[in-house]
Design a protein around this nucleic acid. Structure first.
Lengths: 140, 140
DNA sequence: GGCATATGATTCGGTCGCCGAATGATATGG
DNA sequence: CCATATCATTCGGCGACCGAATCATATGCC
C-alpha cells in the first residue's frame, strides 16, 4: 500500500499543498488562487471558463474571485457582447502577485527537490506531466 | 507555475485521491481508512500512535475507528498494562478488507501508470519515495 | 497511602472548502 | 414576443479536520 504510486502521490500532494499554503499565507493567498492568477495571465476569462479549467463549480469560483477582488488582484468586467458573462482580468497588482507566487512556487520546488539530482528532478517533472496529460486528471 | 513539480504533485495527488475514493466507496471505506488498516496489519496500536503515524489529531482517529468498528473491521481492546489506552487490532474482516484495498490500490496504480513505461514507473516510485523520506513529509 | 499532575480516549463546537439547488439577469431560437 | 438556455450569484448543507473541555487512569512526589 505505502509502496504504491497512488498512495505516495496522494499523501505527498496533500503535504506539498499544506507547505505551499504556508508560504502563500503572507500574501493573503491560498494555493487555489494561484491557478486562477496563472490562467488569467494568458488573458481575461469568464468565470465558467475558470471553473472548468480549475475543476471546481461555479460557486467556488465566485468565492475565490471575491477574495482576489478584495486584494485588488482582479477586476470583473461585464462582457459587452454577452452581458451575462463577467470577464475576469488581472490588475497590475494581480500581475505582481502572480510573479510573487511563481517565485514562491519555484522556491518550494527547490526545497522539495533538494534531495534528488537535477536529472532525476527533470525526469520527475516529465513523468508527472505525462501522467497528468494521459489520465486527463489535470484540465488543460 | 503549472510546470513546477509542486503544483503537479498537489493537483495530481488530489485527483488521485478522488479516483481512489471512488474505487473504495463500494467497500464502505474512504482513503484515510486504508492507512489505518495498513498500519494495523503490523500489529495492534494505540489510538494516539495511529494519530501520529497518520498525521491527524486524536479526535479524528476516534471517528475513523468508529466507522471501522461499524464495519467490524477493527476491535478496541483496553490495554491491560495501561487501562487508559485502547489497543486497536484488526479483525479477520479487517484483514480481508485490507487485502481488498491493497488490490484496489494496485489496480489504481495500473490505470495511473498505463501511459508510461514500467521502467519509468519504477523510477517514479523510487523518486517519490526519496522525496517523501527526505522531506519528512510522510510519517514513517 | 494520598494528592497533584500528566496522559489516553472521547465529546463537542467550530472552521474550511467544496457541492447542488434555487434565483435573477440576460441571451437566443422559434 | 415568449419559452428555454446560460451565466453569475446566493444559500444551505456536508465531510474532514482541528482545539478545547471532559473523564478515566497512571505516575511522581511528599
Amino acid at each position: 500500500m505505502t509502496d504504491t504510486v497512488g498512495f505516495l502521490l496522494g499523501k505527498l500532494g496533500q503535504q506539498v499543498n499544506v507547505r505551499f499554503a504556508g508560504r502563500l499565507a503572507p500574501l493573503g493567498l491560498r494555493p487555489r488562487h494561484c491557478a486562477v492568477l496563472e490562467l488569467l495571465s494568458g488573458g481575461p476569462l469568464a468565470q465558467l471558463e475558470l471553473a472548468k479549467a480549475i475543476g471546481v463549480t461555479a460557486s467556488v469560483v465566485v468565492d475565490m474571485l471575491d477574495e482576489l477582488e478584495q486584494l485588488d488582484a482582479i477586476r470583473r468586467v461585464r462582457d459587452a457582447a454577452d452581458r451575462r458573462r463577467q470577464l475576469i482580468e488581472l490588475t497590475p497588482t494581480g500581475r505582481e502577485l502572480r510573479h510573487q507566487t511563481l517565485s514562491l512556487a519555484r522556491q518550494n520546488d527547490e526545497e522539495l527537490l533538494a534531495a534528488i539530482s537535477p536529472a532525476e528532478a527533470a525526469a520527475l517533472r516529465h513523468t508527472l506531466g505525462r501522467i497528468a496529460a494521459a489520465t486527463g486528471l489535470i484540465a488543460k
